[in-house]
């Protein structure tokens, strides 16, 4: 067989193989579409679909960061607290300087700082990231509560609400922000050497070290990326409510991890894609949205969501 035909053969096999999981996820999304469009005629309306993209934006943005952490074989449980702290920091800067750009930069950097602390302790302190970030979950939330005295910072200028509640035409601004973060994340993961290094560290850390990859540096990077996405998520949350709530985003870590794992990533590292995470977050969003439309109580929603996640992941493993 000559080279070009061999390569063509490889390519066609490859496409199906590479996107097997994603094809399955699209299938799940379609099934959910069919079910919910039968039970609620409003579900398939364009305003509701755009609404879903807005509802999932924070979860999705933070899940993009989590994809990197999970790919490298680590976990970050502190994302909810980090988002709350970052949102609080942004509100604090905004009220004291009245500058929206400074508030945004400050909020994102706060998230990045918390992430880098997680990374440094995990890598150089040689403590499991589960433990480090579980502690950080408490610490960051505690700082947020202590800083604010448990009360929200409100009275933010109305212009600030654009990031969480604004629209560009009919498209929600948070949707646009999450799209931009996704594009950056996608290029970073798939088109730069950083991305392939992070994936290889998760696939086999020993082999990565022997392959002359600066393993420690890139492990810390993943936590910083995660932190930055928490910062962005926190700003959107603060903006949406026009106030920084100290208890916002409680439990976000579970939704984020569920989205990433639903998207086909493996908690042991090395396996996962951002397209998968996009679909994972979308599935979670559709389920919540659809159940709200039908009027299922929030208590039952949690049960149903849990069951659907388990069934979806179990089905994937079989495929």
């Amino acid at each position: 067989m000559d080279n070009s035909s061999l390569e063509r053969k490889i390519k066609s096999n490859n496409l199906i193989d590479t996107y097997k999981k994603e094809i399955g996820l699209v299938g799940i999304i379609l099934i959910l579409f069919v079910i919910f469009s039968f039970v609620s005629e409003y579900f398939l309306s364009s305003s509701n679909l755009l609404n879903i993209t807005r509802q999932i934006s924070v979860n999705f943005i933070v899940a993009i960061g989590a994809t990197f952490v999970i790919l490298s074989g680590e976990i970050d449980l502190s994302v909810g607290s980090n988002a709350a702290l970052s949102g609080m920091a942004a509100a604090f800067i905004l009220t004291s300087t009245n500058s929206i750009p400074l508030a945004i930069i400050g909020g994102i950097l706060t998230g990045g700082l918390v992430g880098s602390i997680n990374g440094l302790i995990t890598v150089f302190g040689k403590v499991q990231s589960f433990i480090v970030t579980l502690s950080m979950l408490g610490i960051a939330r505690g700082i947020t509560l202590a800083w604010s005295g448990g009360k929200p910072i409100s009275g933010l200028p109305f212009e600030f609400s654009i990031f969480g509640a604004g629209y560009w035409g009919i498209i929600p601004i948070p949707t646009i922000i999450s799209f931009i973060v996704f594009i950056f994340g996608y290029l970073y993961l798939n088109k730069t050497k950083h991305g392939i290094y992070i994936r290889s560290i998760g696939a086999n850390r020993e082999a990565a070290k022997y392959s002359a990859i600066p393993v420690s540096k890139y492990r810390i990077y993943t936590f910083i990326i995660q932190g930055l996405t928490c910062g962005i998520g926190g700003i959107i949350l603060t903006s949406k409510l026009l106030s920084a709530q100290p208890s916002v985003a409680t439990g976000l870590e579970l939704d984020v991890i569920a989205a990433v794992i639903l998207g086909g990533a493996s908690l042991s590292g090395g396996v996962g894609t951002l397209i998968g995470t996009l679909f994972g977050a979308t599935i979670m969003g559709i389920i919540s949205n659809g159940m709200n439309l039908i009027g299922i109580s929030a208590f039952y929603q949690q049960i149903v969501r849990g069951i659907i996640i388990i069934v979806a992941i179990a089905a994937q493993k079989r495929a």
Partner: peptide, 15 residues
């Protein structure tokens, strides 16, 4: 130590 067993030949050679 030597390989990324779950990755492709291509990735192992290129990383």
């Amino acid at each position: 130590q030597g390989l990324f067993l779950d990755l492709k030949i291509e990735e192992n050679l290129i990383i």
